[in-house]
Amino acid sequence: MSAREAILGRIKQSLNVSGDDAGRKHTVKSRLETHPRHTIPERGQLDLEGRIGLLAEILEGQSASIAPVAKIADVPEEILRYLRGHGLAPALRIGENPVLRPLDWERAKLEVAAGAADTHTLTGCSTAFCAIAESGTLMLLSGPQNPATLNYLPDNHIVVLKREDVLASYEEGWDKMRARGADIPRNVNYISGPSRTADIEQTIFLGAHGPRRLHVVMVK
């Protein structure tokens, strides 16, 4: 008997059920198909302004920063301002991102490379699929447009987010993902601040392995 058969068989034996019990199968099938929601905290269930305010408040409390811009064309200027403000080199790396690639980076005198991050990448820039107000969380989907290494290897991570994509809860984020119709990507990344550790004497320190800084550019 294979380990698989042995393990599944023992579980059934413990539960005192047989595998082809139609009732159990039906229960499982309908749970998976209807994926019912449980209690969703009220704190995130606000109008768009309220959700944006909550997202910003929580993210800033986690030592991230957030800046609004009026239109997508203003993103390079804002990124330049941010990098200068922190004394960082005016260079960044993006994926094959259909939103970021066409922007006029040259005018902002930003040096932009494309592709996955390596250990020399100082600043990575990605686009968020949406954000979750209740916990101050950015939700990113991996793929050629957002290579996952951009989120974790560079010292600084900049995320471009559309205002109307600030949702109330995790559940709304999952519904939005299901509505895409496409297969799920390898990674769905929830990011709720810069990297941190409290492993030495419970003292919080930013930039453990991942980015030391997280900056969100919110586009109207």
Partner: peptide
């Protein structure tokens, strides 16, 4: 409220 990074992973790279 939530850990800094929560990652949902399926399969190898696409």
């Amino acid at each position: 409220d939530i850990s800094t990074y929560t990652t949902f992973t399926s399969g190898p790279k696409r």
